[in-house]
Design a protein around this nucleic acid. Structure first.
Lengths: 196, 196
DNA sequence: GTTCCCATGTAACCCGTTACATGATTTT
DNA sequence: AAAATCATGTAACGGGTTACATGGGAAC
């Protein structure tokens, strides 16, 4: 049993739902797994090649006239065995959080207060958009047999994003207090901002 | 101005605090930035080479007798300019969340309830450990001039992790109800757990 | 009737990870 | 005295991202 990256098993899992082409896999992944495990199309194609070589999936060419020819893949017996083996194995890689915004904020003492506020505002907008996207998708998850777990997982995403929004409000208050108390632009003065 | 990855600017930012060797940078990053932007030592050394070629940092060799010789780097004028330029630029890459646990949970209908509970228990343990680590570190952040922002950023990490712990409790309840109602192991039987 | 989007994929790059190296100092 | 740790780094691998290709339909 070769050591495979998580994305391989994610694809095996998706193919356990139904047989699909690489393009369809990418589309489905983008609406489900992407919220916690994004995969680019290129990666999917490469992984499918490898999984086929390993015998975990079997592909067959399909001719199409209007659209480009495609290759659809189905999960094989060994593929399903590898999938459930991976699923049952209790360990997992610790979650990775990479947040460029926080890196900037970490060095934000080199910025002016107005710039920090602009950064925070951008962050809030991005997180709010992300949350809205999640909330909009949560209703459509029932189309997938994973529905029950899908709801649960969407809850994970929503809880963390709401926590971030709460943090942003707290951070804005803290920075506002600082600006009012010290060396900064006073808060809520309608005229004096450095930004247009 | 070449396009550089976030890690480059993270290093410039650390070098804006004080001059350091690669090893010291790695040690400092591991106690601060690593919570939201981990960097391996190898990456740091490679980035330092590049930053030196770009003229953003200047390195000088330091002989040592007990310890191996080292090379310490200081931020140059152009380096500082690149840093503040990057900081002030309002955009940032959207945060990346990669959570292998959620991938497994997404396909967890292929598992038995006890296995799902074991997965959840592992997750809770990992998150709780992570949170404890963060809480232990939050007091020591004042050693760095970023102190004020450091507290804020630690709050970000703590809020999200607490939200996850709340989600885990919710998930365990939901799965417990399901197990009680249907095809599964009944919840809160004092003897039958798979974990000690 | 150009311009944009759909559906399908290949090729190249590079950041981040893992493995390797080394001599002194401390611990068991 | 063997083993682990510290303090420094180099080299190789590979997963994930970005760029490239293409031909038919839809939109404007």
């Amino acid at each position: 049993m070769a050591v495979l990256p998580t994305s391989s098993f994610a694809l095996l899992g998706l193919l356990s739902i139904r047989t699909m082409s690489g393009y369809e896999l990418a589309a489905l992944a983008d609406k489900s797994l992407a919220y916690f495990w994004p995969m680019h199309r290129s990666l999917i194609y490469r992984e499918l090649h490898r999984l086929e070589q390993l015998g975990y999936v079997a592909g067959s060419d399909v001719r199409q006239q209007r659209l480009p020819d495609k290759r659809i893949y189905r999960l094989t017996g060994p593929g399903r065995a590898a999938l459930v083996d991976w699923l049952a194995q209790p360990g997992f890689r610790p979650p990775q959080y990479r947040n460029e915004f926080l890196v900037k904020l970490f060095f934000a003492h080199q910025l002016q207060p107005a710039q920090v506020h602009a950064l925070l505002a951008d962050y809030r907008e991005a997180v709010a958009l992300d949350l809205a996207d999640l909330e909009a998708t949560v209703g459509k998850l029932d189309a997938i047999p994973q529905g029950r777990f899908g709801q649960l997982i969407a809850g994970h995403g929503m809880r963390t994003r709401r926590a971030i929004l709460e943090w942003i409000a707290e951070a804005e208050q803290a920075l506002g207090r600082d600006a009012a108390a010290g060396r900064g632009i006073p808060p809520s003065t309608p005229s004096g901002g450095a930004r247009p």
